[in-house]
């Protein structure tokens, strides 16, 4: 595999051909904020947090789905990018009911920690306070739609890692909703294998293991890593 050389934030780096800008940056120790990206599953470019500036291209490009080219000059951080990222987070916090103080994921939430790290200290948009429910019908897990940011990680791991195909999306626009099977209570799903991968993949408190209370929901991402490395590298890590 041929290597490509490029510049990210002034740093000269080399990356494998076919690598994404996000891969290259991560290798070089440069952090690009992401929400919909999850190591091991294919990328969809949905959250738009990872947008970067590439010299000579007047559009912002998502780092997670854009492949590196020879001689690319990339900026992952600028006043403008930081502003857009903060606004994206503000829009998310205003969209559903993210009440950190009473959330199982408090302190272990990617949305929350991004808000800290990107300096989103308040939300200037009207909170929508939509009426979303909680699905507690599953014996092991629960789904709180109020916390969902529609990153589709759960859908992707359910289809492409576990292969169960339980999770899906219904509706469109701000009415989009994560559903189980044919939009039925999760507990009545015939396809759910109760593997818990969606719960481990979720960045917020939307999917949780039952029994956890405020701030207790820690994610164990190694459950995904095991299958992904087995598939991609043919190694069975213990």
């Amino acid at each position: 595999m041929a290597a490509k050389t490029l510049t990210i934030d002034g740093k000269q780096i080399s990356a494998d051909q076919g690598a994404t800008i996000l891969d290259a940056a991560t290798d070089a120790g440069i952090t690009i904020p992401t929400l919909c990206h999850l190591d091991g599953v294919y990328d969809v470019g949905a959250c738009r947090l990872c947008l970067v500036e590439v010299a000579g291209i007047n559009k912002l490009l998502p780092a997670c789905t854009t492949r590196v080219h020879e001689g690319m000059v990339i900026k992952t951080d600028s006043e403008r990018l930081r502003k857009y990222r903060r606004m994206t987070l503000e829009l998310l916090f205003a969209e559903r009911n993210h009440v950190c103080a009473v959330c199982v994921a408090n302190g272990h939430c990617e949305l929350q920690s991004l808000a800290y790290s990107l300096g989103m200290d308040h939300v200037r948009y009207d909170y929508r306070f939509p009426k979303w429910g909680v699905d507690n019908t599953h014996t092991l897990f629960g789904m709180d739609h109020n916390r969902c940011i529609l990153c589709m990680r759960c859908v992707r791991v359910c289809w492409h890692i576990e292969g169960a195909g339980t999770k899906n999306v219904s509706g469109r626009g701000s009415g989009s909703q994560i559903i189980s099977d044919l939009n039925q209570p999760w507990g009545t799903s015939d396809t759910c294998t109760r593997c818990g991968k969606c719960v481990m993949a979720c960045p917020t408190g939307a999917l949780f293991a039952k029994g956890a209370t405020v701030s207790e929901m820690e994610r164990d991402r190694t459950r995904l890593e095991f299958i992904v490395t087995a598939r991609e590298k043919k190694q069975w890590i213990a």
Binding site: A46, R48, L91, A94, E95, Y125, R128, L150, R172, G173
Partner: peptide
């Protein structure tokens, strides 16, 4: 109304 809901700026931005 017609936003597909996939990306945040369009889904939540048009609402605001």
């Amino acid at each position: 109304d017609e936003s597909c809901g996939k990306c945040i700026p369009c889904r939540a931005g048009t609402v605001q």
